[in-house]
């Protein structure tokens, strides 16, 4: 028996496999067809204080090996999430804790959302994940995650606003991840999520127009996986913070790569859309791998790369 339990900065997970924000709704939409018993957490779609309409259509384009999306964080606001979506989630069988992905237009809004969620005291909510890296919505021309000083400031404010485990989700498109990791550590984050989508663009050459209503979007899926492994590896080398890794996981092998590179847990994103049983298969595959390699607990995989 492999011990599949893990701990992500205070969030106890019965399985190292979670779902990634924006790809699993608010946690309840897939309740009929996904086996939740093998999930350690689900991550809800980004929420802010008020309702937000999102971007114009088209909001996505299929590309070789992946997907470019520019949904633009449409949502009904935090109150609707806490009342309606968390109620729907209470009806999910074998439901794991929810990681709530939050965002805001200002630093204060980030803190306000986190505070509102904490104050609601919902037992199913296990952690907060700050999205400072969405390529589809910008505050002042850049995302909060593109400047370590701004990042430190916004994470500090959210830290002061909540006692829930605090995960910060970083962008992969920075010259080096270390200063951003350091800023999160200094500001009191409990864990990191890596990676968000990679800024991308698709052009309709016949019409000579951008395909996406937002013109640009974020790349996810199979094709981003090796790039994501590199970012996780780089981050793990400079921090003790546990890492929730995501980016192009379709099979157990992809998840195990992330763990060997330094992740404590993994999240399935784009793969769920075509294969909703991906998380369960990844879970089974990790168990099989641990048994085959003599690991008694999945935690032993974290950073277990053999390097000279």
């Amino acid at each position: 028996m492999v011990n599949m339990g893990t701990n992500l900065g205070g969030l106890a997970m019965r399985s190292p496999v979670a779902t990634a924000s924006g790809t699993f709704g608010y946690g309840h939409e897939y309740r009929d067809i996904v086996d939740y018993s093998k999930l350690g957490a689900v991550t809800a779609k980004g929420v802010r204080m008020e309702a937000w309409p999102g971007n114009a259509m088209m909001r996505h384009a299929e590309v070789p090996g992946g997907l470019v999306n520019a949904i633009g964080l449409q949502g009904m606001g935090v109150k609707h999430f806490l009342e309606r979506d968390m109620f729907m989630y209470s009806m999910v069988k074998d439901a794991p804790p929810v990681i709530v992905n939050v965002w805001g237009g200002t630093e204060d809004e980030y803190a306000q959302v986190a505070e509102t969620i904490s104050a609601a005291g919902k037992p199913q909510i296990g952690a907060i994940e700050m999205n400072v890296s969405c390529p589809n919505v910008k505050a002042g021309g850049h995302t909060f995650g593109q400047d370590p000083k701004v990042l430190f400031s916004v994470v500090s404010k959210v830290r002061a606003a909540t006692k829930l485990p605090l995960i910060v989700k970083l962008a992969p498109n920075v010259p080096a991840i270390a200063p951003y990791v350091q800023a999160c550590e200094d500001a009191g984050a409990d864990a990191l999520s890596l990676i968000n989508t990679i800024p991308a663009m698709v052009i309709d050459i016949e019409k000579r127009v951008p395909v996406l209503g937002n013109r640009t979007g974020g790349l996810s899926g199979r094709c981003v996986h090796p790039a994501a492994v590199k970012v996780v590896y780089d981050a793990h080398r400079v921090t003790k913070l546990p890492i929730l890794a995501m980016g192009g996981i379709y099979e157990a092998k992809d998840a195990i790569e992330f763990m060997l590179a330094g992740a404590s847990a993994v999240a399935i994103g784009t793969a769920t859309f075509s294969a909703p049983d991906t998380a369960a298969k990844v879970y089974d595959g990790i168990v099989e791998y641990c048994e085959r390699h003599g690991f008694g607990s999945v935690g032993e995989l974290t950073g277990a790369l053999c390097e000279s």
Binding site: G25, E29, M57
Partner: peptide, 19 residues
């Protein structure tokens, strides 16, 4: 155009009186 077909991704938008 759709991604998930399950109400989970917000890709498939039509404007209505609700937004």
């Amino acid at each position: 155009h759709m991604i998930c077909g399950m109400g989970a991704c917000f890709a498939c938008i039509q404007k209505t009186v609700r937004g």
